[in-house]
Design a protein around this nucleic acid. Sequence first.
DNA 1: CGTTAATCGAGACGGTACGTCCTGTCTTCGG
DNA 2: CCGAAGACAGGACGTACCGTCTCGATTAACG
Lengths: 200, 200, 200, 200
Amino acid sequence: MSSAVADTPRSPGRPRSVRADEAIIEATLDLLAEGMSVDVLSIEAIAARAGVGKATIYRRWSGKDALMHDALATLKAPAPLPEGKSVRDDLVLLLSHVGPQPDPRLAAIMPCILPHVTRSEEHYKAYQDIIEPRRNVVRSVLQRGVDSGELRADLDLELTLAMLIGPVLIQRVLRWHPDLDADKLPAQVVDLIMAGIAAR
Amino acid sequence: MSSAVADTPRSPGRPRSVRADEAIIEATLDLLAEGMSVDVLSIEAIAARAGVGKATIYRRWSGKDALMHDALATLKAPAPLPEGKSVRDDLVLLLSHVGPQPDPRLAAIMPCILPHVTRSEEHYKAYQDIIEPRRNVVRSVLQRGVDSGELRADLDLELTLAMLIGPVLIQRVLRWHPDLDADKLPAQVVDLIMAGIAAR
Amino acid sequence: MSSAVADTPRSPGRPRSVRADEAIIEATLDLLAEGMSVDVLSIEAIAARAGVGKATIYRRWSGKDALMHDALATLKAPAPLPEGKSVRDDLVLLLSHVGPQPDPRLAAIMPCILPHVTRSEEHYKAYQDIIEPRRNVVRSVLQRGVDSGELRADLDLELTLAMLIGPVLIQRVLRWHPDLDADKLPAQVVDLIMAGIAAR
Amino acid sequence: MSSAVADTPRSPGRPRSVRADEAIIEATLDLLAEGMSVDVLSIEAIAARAGVGKATIYRRWSGKDALMHDALATLKAPAPLPEGKSVRDDLVLLLSHVGPQPDPRLAAIMPCILPHVTRSEEHYKAYQDIIEPRRNVVRSVLQRGVDSGELRADLDLELTLAMLIGPVLIQRVLRWHPDLDADKLPAQVVDLIMAGIAAR
DNA sequence: CGTTAATCGAGACGGTACGTCCTGTCTTCGG
DNA sequence: CCGAAGACAGGACGTACCGTCTCGATTAACG
């Protein structure tokens, strides 16, 4: 093409391998999902699992935190499902997706990053760009429920958000609980919080 | 000993220092409360903080897990508060105690052990003796509410438990949330779950 | 070219740069002469010094050993000096040429390759084609001395060769010796070995 | 003992293992003797060969150079043999000891350190305390020969020294030479240099 | 009141992972 | 096709801790 734009000037030398990029991210997610905590997750282990030299990782990311952030960002489900017929069904769907879908590793990883973001405001802010879009979807569903009259008009959206997400975050702990079924949890949570626990 | 009762047979040699015991437990809790995750919490750091040799720790505990367990067990508030005048007030009180009281470090530590117990059923069971008594208190308050007619007769106690505890576990994450006040969270959570979010 | 002789069929594409060839050889010799050992001498360093890409080197030589061999072969003085008037003068001249002439780097490089050829018989043999011609010149001078009666008839030529070359090889070590002058060393060595050290 | 001297105050903590010291030195000498050059010799290889952690090496030596120096110092034969009946026999004995005795690795290592000490005056000086004592013994034998009239009165001791040591340093190269026998080399060298090569 | 024995702080032990640097090879572009 | 630039997998660097061990000194109860 003889026309103008020099789209991407293209730096000299061999371009970075896309295969390596993917292998590193996948290895990171796999290791996280295998239950390793953020702190015990080692660059050396990631490199070995990805079949990659350590330098290839450090060429792309400054350290473990930056790599982790990008790895988790790839899990950022591209808007899982915005709309259904009722607020109740939408919420159940969304909460189910914080769970095993779309990437089955997500449910395993989430509790691992919880203490990570808890450590400091700095860590917390670093993950806002990943967490907030997900929360926004839930928030908008709640707002729609208020507007449509399905939910109470005086509802504290932020509080409700925290209560919806909390149980799901600890759902892995509930796996071994004899009286609860993790698969049905989202629906039960939504139903309970819709109705309230107080007697009528 | 020529006397009767062999109370404690008393082994020969220098007895173990009580000061060391306490210093180690305190150092462990301090470090956990400072936001370190379970994995990065090192025996070496505990020993240094406690002013104690590493062997002094390994002589008492088999490893990090055993020490952690005992340290957290000392936080096991000796029955925080059994009874109030209403289920609502009791729940608020109990949830507040999962928070900053009685030991201010408790709230900081709880999110740290979450991924730890999540790792495997083995880890999970190891902490049951600490977690379950606390849950039992909440459970009995809920049962009393059902019996007294304050709560719905068909209430799923285990599910309700999970929903009450979830938001509190992630309350540290909410510290930096602009629209939520961690101190008021327990009361808000209880009120919301009592009433439900559905419009009447 | 429309003219006649297609001497060398001339492969297609850009011909190899003679400048690069020379620059690589020169860079190799320079680095060796700067006292680097054979093992620390890196292709990367040679490429950088020559202002050349690493691939440009690997396209011409199979590896470090092959490059080194060719580089040293260029130092193979094209018959330094065959004949003088006396065996003594010839030897002094030859030893001086193992030293700073004709290429001043030769004296610096020789001790570097010593441990290299020492490593295995394989390495040793690889450099025979460079070393032996030089030794042959000395050998023939010695033989001429025996024939002419200047040297003892029962002389062990190989042994004498080793004794003449040894001191020169370590002459760099002698640079800092306060009582020896490297420049005069060849003459002194020849004179001493001619006369012997035993009292008469 | 109630008397004075507090010999060695003894620092607290576990004392350093003598076994480790020895294993490290032995591993270093073994690897050097196996023909590795100084530069390719890695701390990691030494640690592996010695069955020792890297930290155990770095706790004792600042780096490769310091370790090498101490390793070679242990080869410093504690006065190989001072005196015989003739200067000739003494020299043969001493030169033989620069060779395979007392430690058979010495002959293999010497050519390896030659380019090392050659690199700079700094490196050269660092090994003076190892090299010079050995040279001193030879020097004193030569001086004794001059005093006793066995050697020429006008002998240049330093030059003679260089000529005696040179051939031995390159004796490994001579291993594969068909016409020379490394074992007999010292005697041949001494005899030749005593008599001179000039015809009488 | 000296013996005995388990404790203490201290720190070295064999390891593992760190993040950096350099190896020799491979892969892209522009000349 | 060549040349430079530079990414690739691999591996050694020197540091920092890991959990274990070994040391001299301390500290009680027992004989």
